[in-house]
Simulated scan of single mutants.
Amino acid sequence: MMTERYIKLGGQIALISFLLGTLIFGLFFITSAFEILFFAYGFIALTSLINLGALISILLKAHKDKDNRIKLFTTCGLMLLNIPIMLLYCSITIILLNTMRITFTNSTQITLTNINIVGCGGGYIDKLENGESKTVWIDITGDCSIDINYLSNGQKKEELVASYVSNSMGQKMKHNVGGQNEE
């Protein structure tokens, strides 16, 4: 195979790996679907093997082709850039797995105030107008439940948001304050 084909193949493998990895990470970030994680693990394993095979092939070509060695090493460096990107995506995923991202929506006809999120890492929302939504990121600190208490027309009310949350159970969810909810 000619040197240009090695360089082109290495660049294509690096670009496709980056784009597909970013797509998978983006889908998980948006949905928090655990099924995507299983797919991601398989993708990382398969892509690692493909990239390693291409990298070794390009390095062997660089050893033989002294005239184009710099171009071939540059291609290897481009391929290796996917490693820190993958590690960044994995570390963000671990953070997401240990975080509840809850969107609280005021489903009542009045303004709710002093919304205190109790349990896990807790949180606070000063007020929610009728129909207004706010998303709170809550650290999962171990086995815990998440409740809220708030003031509605000066009366203190309480609601269960999540009865059981534990490490690696992070997800996105919606909670209608003062309304019907599914856990």
Rank of each mutant, 00 (worst) to 15 (best):
I30D: 14
E158Q: 09
I83R: 03
V118H: 05
G154A: 09
Q155F: 14
I70E: 15
I85H: 00
L97M: 09
I94W: 12
G131F: 06
S48Y: 11
N149S: 12
K61S: 03
V136Y: 01
A162M: 10
L9C: 07
C120W: 00
G142H: 07
I138Q: 05
I24S: 03
A40M: 12
E159R: 07
M79N: 01
I115M: 01
C144Q: 00
M1L: 10
L88E: 08
C76V: 15
I95W: 13
D65Q: 04
I50W: 03
K127Q: 13
V161F: 00
D126S: 14
I102V: 14
K64E: 14
F25G: 07
E132C: 00
Y89K: 10
N82V: 02
L112G: 03
K172A: 08
T99G: 07
N153I: 00
I146V: 13
G119S: 05
G170T: 04
I148H: 01
I148L: 02
S48I: 08
N82P: 04
G10T: 01
S168Y: 10
F73M: 10
I138H: 03
Y41K: 14
F39I: 15
N114D: 15
I7G: 00
I36F: 02
G154N: 08
G122A: 01
K71M: 06
I16P: 00
L96D: 04
D67G: 07
I24D: 06
S48G: 14
N116E: 15
L112T: 02
R101F: 15
K64Y: 13
I7N: 02
G53N: 08
E159V: 07
